[in-house]
């Protein structure tokens, strides 16, 4: 399947489903589809890493299979598991005449296999986007598990043999870089760093997400956020928070974002007390 025919095609089609991609994102998304390589997306929280995968699935009409990573994620939750209870029932239900060999072959078959996201994504014959979210939260061992899936798009199940992908999924891995991923995983992926957008693009994002917002307020909002990001805060406001802020302003019927209005609604974008103090002081709000 051809995911995108060119970088500019990626820009337009992602734009149509409401994801405004910058040139680097569009080019990389195009390459990930064309080279059939997984795409590793890094960047601060709330810049649209997960959203990129969702947008690709919407734009191409593919289904999204999602694997949310967390500490303690293991093979049974990520790849596949045998349905023990059903296997037990099968053994008990078998009549005495049946030989063990037959039963053995029987209980390790497709029927008793519970597929988890990674295996599901590989076995699907329809176009699929596989999202492996927050891959940096997993233990190092899980990365080893991912290697076979990411490089050859196949999973080896000892009892069944190797299951190879009938149709390679579009794989997106996201990471907050709270841990360095191993070189082996990185080598198999295309790399994209998503950062806070420039003011023009951010304004476009805000107006597309919150269409009712007044143009003047949108401009003020985006420049205020840009200033906040310059302040060396502990947690700089993300795009998601900018959009939240826009919604707040809309709900409060604020049509001029002056110092007073910023001060009143600052809690929407800044989540640390020291950050708020600093912003109040630097922007001279009080």
């Amino acid at each position: 399947m051809v995911w995108f025919s060119s970088p500019s095609d990626a820009t337009t089609r992602l734009g149509e489903v409401g994801y405004l991609a910058d040139p680097a994102t569009a080019t990389t998304a195009f390459l990930a589809g064309a080279l059939e390589k997984p795409l590793l997306v890094e960047g601060p929280a709330g810049v649209g890493k997960t959203e990129l995968a969702k947008a690709v699935s919407r734009a191409t009409g593919a289904d999204l299979v999602r694997l949310q990573c967390y500490e303690g994620l293991d093979e049974a939750r990520a790849l596949y598991e045998w349905n023990y209870k059903k296997q037990l029932l099968r053994i008990q239900a078998a009549n005495d005449g049946q030989a063990w060999e037959e039963t053995h072959d029987d209980i390790f078959s497709e029927e008793f296999l519970l597929t988890r996201p990674l295996l599901t994504a590989i076995r699907r014959s329809e176009p699929t986007v596989l999202l492996i979210d927050e891959v940096d939260k997993t233990d190092v061992e899980v990365e080893g598990l991912l290697l076979e899936v990411l490089s050859d798009f196949q999973v080896t199940i000892p009892e069944l043999g190797t299951v190879a992908a009938t149709r390679r999924p579009f794989v997106v891995l996201t990471s907050n870089a709270s841990r360095e991923l191993s070189e082996a995983v990185k080598r198999r992926c295309l790399y994209l760093h998503l950062d806070y957008p420039d003011t023009e693009r951010e304004r476009a994002i805000v107006t597309s997400q919150v269409p009712d917002l007044d143009d003047k307020v949108a401009t003020q909002l985006v420049s205020a956020v840009a200033r906040l990001r310059d302040l060396e805060l502990k947690k700089a406001p993300s795009i998601a928070e900018t959009v939240d802020w826009a919604r707040t302003l809309l709900a409060l019927h604020i049509d001029d974002l002056d110092a007073m209005a910023i001060d009143d609604t600052l809690g929407v974008v800044l989540k640390h007390a020291s950050d708020t103090d600093r912003a109040v002081r630097e922007l001279k709000l009080r």
Partner: peptide, 9 residues
């Protein structure tokens, strides 16, 4: 080049 060669920001 950035997508294929770079591995960290």
């Amino acid at each position: 080049y950035a997508a294929t060669l770079l591995k960290r920001q």
